[in-house]
Nucleic acid binder design. Structure first.
Lengths: 238, 238
DNA sequence: ACCTGAACACCGTTCAAGT
DNA sequence: ACCTGAACACCGTTCAAGT
């Protein structure tokens, strides 16, 4: 919508020599820092400008909007994740490789929940996302699958990893945090409420409540991932 | 944090006779309407108050914060979904039942993407979410699984459905919508860009690009769901 | 070419004042 | 018990003015 030259691709300080006191990289570094320190809600142009010791307007030289800032910051932070995934050695079993990569991706997003919101959103800005997708998909090339099956399988694995990690990253509703309760305490409180429900109305909830109470999110992710991978193995064998 | 009595559970117009010109239900109806019409970003207390023909302050009589408003609106909108899931008849194969329910849930969220953000966030406010979870889980009681396996399986299915639907619900980045391009056009544009990439660097992307181009999101979800269900069937058979 | 910060048009939330 | 809307403390974004 805006026609200012600095909002077009390739403009800004990216091309040409740089005389500026800041740089896109510096802006993104500071953005990632703020995001890590206080989460997505705390990132404002004012706080970012303060950290960079400039005026708010300066940021708009490097980035056309907050959306673009977050797109770029996400891609920026995905760099090390791509490296970690590249470091996964090719093994005998392609499914083992896929599992390893999915876990690396999942762990990265759990550590930085704000990543999930913009991950793979803009393929033009986010080159790293596409590279990640490529790496995750490569093991499936060694399996006896159609392109369509590969596409669906890799999308399912990444979608499940990102979706699950995003869910975990959500901080619990404020109402539950009035007192200084930690995660285990919250789970336990919910569990007790579930146990108080009528067992005839909630047979499933009663069946699993002990598993829910104190459960580890990582276990939950891995179990779901195993189901997908088992289904995939079956598909390739058929 | 606030100590106003109306923010505590059970306060407000919920208990006692109602003489008010509005009601929590009316507020939630209007909220859902606005959400449907214009998406999560368009919902403001001012627009909601305008629709209800009141002042902004009035809404705070029924709800302590925007967070609570969205929690309650989500639960409110989940009512019909629960009914639809209850209408799924119990069949021979529990996995078929689970599949049907998952698809109902998925479809509901695709239709109302804003649901995903608050789904299952607050178990105290969202009674309907818990009921949904119960229904989704019931088929697994008829399968030869441990409670832990059930817990993991149902969490995986709901997580995958909600996560995938949420992803689809994201509107594409503004930069891609400059002209009046529709979804197919966007997919096609991305696909062409992918085809232009070096085939040696991106073998997987090249392998699946024709599947990506013009793909149907629902197919993608169903394929992933089948992988999970196949894995689950295997687990129950083992 | 890059930076600045006041100004604009919004937000969610509060609260004294009304009925 | 319920409603009102001005006021407060924020936002993202713009832009004339600086170097």
């Amino acid at each position: 919508m805006t026609t200012r030259p600095r909002s077009t691709a390739g403009a800004g300080p990216a091309r040409g020599r740089r005389r500026s006191s800041h740089s896109l990289d510096a802006v993104l570094d500071a953005t990632v820092q703020l995001l890590d320190e206080a989460g997505g809600a705390a990132l404002t142009f004012r706080s970012l400008a303060a950290r960079l010791r400039t005026g708010v307007g300066t940021i708009y030289w490097y980035v056309a909007s907050k959306e673009e800032l977050l797109d770029r910051a996400t891609d920026h932070a995905l760099g090390p994740v791509l490296e970690a995934i590249d470091a996964v050695p090719e093994g005998e079993d392609p499914i083992d490789d896929l599992r390893r990569m999915a876990i690396v991706l999942f762990d990265a997003i759990v550590e930085r929940p704000w990543l999930s919101a913009y991950f793979m959103r803009s393929m033009e800005i986010q080159v790293t996302s596409l590279r990640l997708y490529e790496r995750l998909g490569r093991p499936t090339l060694r399996m006896d699958l159609t392109p369509r099956q590969r596409f669906h399988a890799v999308s399912a694995v990444t979608g499940f990893a990102v979706g699950t990690a995003a869910d975990l990253g959500q901080e619990p509703p404020e109402a539950m945090l009035d007192d200084g309760a930690d995660r285990d305490e919250l789970l336990h409180r919910y569990a007790d409420r579930w146990r108080a429900l009528d067992a005839d109305d909630y047979p499933f909830v009663h069946d699993i409540v002990d598993e829910f109470d104190g459960h580890d999110d990582v276990d939950q992710f891995r179990a779901g991932l195993e189901l997908i991978l088992a289904g995939l193995r079956l598909e390739a064998a058929g």
